[in-house]
Design a protein around this nucleic acid. Structure first.
Lengths: 344, 344
DNA sequence: TTTAGCACTCTCGCCTCGAGAGTGCTAAAT
DNA sequence: ATTTAGCACTCTCGAGGCGAGAGTGCTAAA
């Protein structure tokens, strides 16, 4: 990796900035005019030539301006961009919206998707926090009709799960309540593994229930078991790079197909630390699906307790600074939410 | 509304069938060849001319084939198409998938969206059943930490709602349980209005809780308060009529923006009977947003108990027969689910 | 090392033109 | 009175040609 001179860095950064704004290849003369550079277009041309040889720029055709390559964007994001922060006023506005939503996870998720989409002018996605180490907190059994009953279960973090089921024979509400009370007393704070250990002390009905509880807790630990929130899908269609419908379709498929998404998230962000923001530029060679787009991803939450993922999908020509800081900030807010929900 | 001769009906139907298949304007000669008609292309031309004058067909330009107008599609759907049914085998496959999902509403909704999208090759949307006359069933109060507590509430139909809240001062789990028990005993089966009447007999804590319960029940009655499930968004991008990105964007906006959707559903399907399928072709003059698309909508559920909406969004050139029967069948299945959930 | 000058290249929009498809009319046939 | 063959006419669509404009890369001077 050869070192760039300061002037080369400057020019690369300016080309990228200009291209992100206009989506047009940028020419040497245009650059000096636009940014009042104190060296001439000929100099810029020379520098551009070496930047092209280094693989950071390319020309769509012989006599057009230069366009950043993916490698160019990566260099920009890693070395040139610096850490930008959202303006304080913006942060306040966002935080205010969130805190108005109380402790309603669903509203937070929707809001997060909406804020991300709006501030990055791209498509966003947010996964609900999924409990990594679910702990049993409370169980309720409610008779509804004949042998039908409703099981409602509260896990650590306020995760509520419900299930309807038919029993072998009718059971009164009193019996159900007693069973629930016994289980509640016995199982406080246990993990699924722990729960499996207490079944010995229970009778048939209670054993059946516990089995369901364990199943359900296990299910709550699936990465994408919970809901996936999306927003701003129409934004990506506004970008000129998605004027080709097939390109747009490929991009939307990433967000729509759970299996793709799952694979993607599993292989990138899941083995990453909380707090970091990961930037995927143009598929990085491995992801055919997002050859023409970039993603900015982050995890939020508390490792070992509950975590989730959020991110943005847009064209490679993306305002990375703005997007990265938005993603980072929202991830922080969602982490706060997780902490609050698990406070104990 | 002038009466069409049988031959005119035949030709209109064939033009539409052909156009739905190929998306190409259909010419007179092409039509006789394709369907082995026993009259000549000149005759077809004459009939097409009168169909054009009647407003059922039009020509994109002087010397192209004919294309159905929206009026033409409407006539086709109302008069010519007949009631088509899904093949029994298909029905079985679909039903089987659903019954494997147990009583899990979330899974049913996802499945419904997926089935609709798949069988109509278009975008689908399904709203979760929303309780029309919510009745109180069960309440649970769980202390979590300090003055924080979690309220879990079960409504008729197995609708579970949860909320986290901070109390003015710490309250023990015993006190909370007692309060919940009292409310449960007192409020069984009441509507929000009924609940407002019993507050006199309660102390401060219980009154506060009841107030939240009423709020939450009211919220559960919002038309679009629940989740909206979508699928097959990429399908619409495959259709040639959405090759123009702006057209595609307008279509996707309908599905993405809650406010648009809410307005749309409120003004069309909500005052319609269960079991009927409503077909909106090309905006019908009122809906600018869906000038270029059609929707097939239906309500499902039990009026007075819980209902929801489901439907499909696709190009005007849509296989209405297939789509309508799919929508009707899935609506029936979802209605069965609602009945099951409310069985009592 | 930087810059002015200049020839060269390539795209893009615009035009033209011919092929092809499909129509509408007229006159003959049934 | 319908239906049909025949034919002139219209319009789109794609291919090819052409000129303007933008931007480059090189060379030679500063």
């Amino acid at each position: 990796m050869p070192k760039l001179t300061e002037r080369q860095k400057l020019i690369l950064a300016l080309v990228i900035r200009s291209y992100i704004e206009t989506a047009q290849p940028v020419g040497s003369a245009h650059l000096v005019r636009r940014f009042n550079l104190d060296f001439s277009s000929a100099t810029v041309r020379n520098e551009m030539q070496t930047l092209t040889e280094l693989g950071y720029l390319r020309q769509p055709h012989t006599s057009a301006g230069r366009v950043p390559t993916e490698e160019g964007y990566r260099y920009f994001v890693r070395q040139l961009m610096g850490q930008s922060e959202l303006p304080v006023a913006t942060k306040h506005t966002i935080a205010h919206q969130f805190y108005q939503a109380g402790h309603d996870v669903d509203r937070w998720m929707r809001l997060a998707a909406s804020v991300l989409a709006h501030h990055s002018q791209a498509a966003s996605l947010v996964t609900a926090p999924h409990t990594e180490q679910a702990r049993f907190k409370h169980l309720e059994l409610i008779a509804t009709h004949g042998r039908q009953m409703l099981m409602v279960m509260v896990l650590s973090g306020g995760d509520v799960r419900q299930q309807m089921l038919s029993l072998a024979e009718p059971v009164s509400q009193e019996q159900l309540s007693a069973a629930a009370a016994k289980i509640n007393a016995l199982c406080q704070g246990l993990t699924p593994e722990g729960l499996a250990g207490v079944t010995a002390q229970l009778d048939v009905l209670e054993k059946d229930v516990i089995k369901l509880v364990i199943d359900d807790m296990r299910r709550s630990q699936d990465i994408l078991g919970g809901e996936v929130y999306r927003d701003g899908l129409t934004h990506v269609l506004s970008e000129p790079e998605f004027a080709e419908v097939d390109v747009a379709r490929k991009a939307l498929r990433i967000l729509e197909e759970r299996s793709l998404l799952e694979d993607l998230l599993a292989r990138t962000i899941m083995n990453d630390a909380i707090g970091g923001v990961q930037v995927l530029i143009g598929g990085e060679g491995t992801w055919e699906e997002l050859r023409d787009c970039s993603m900015v991803l982050a995890r939020y939450g508390v490792p070992g307790l509950a975590t989730g993922t959020l991110g943005v999908l847009g064209p490679i020509r993306m305002a990375y600074g703005q997007t990265i800081s938005t993603v980072r900030y929202v991830a922080g807010l969602l982490s706060d939410l997780v902490v609050d929900l698990h406070a104990e």
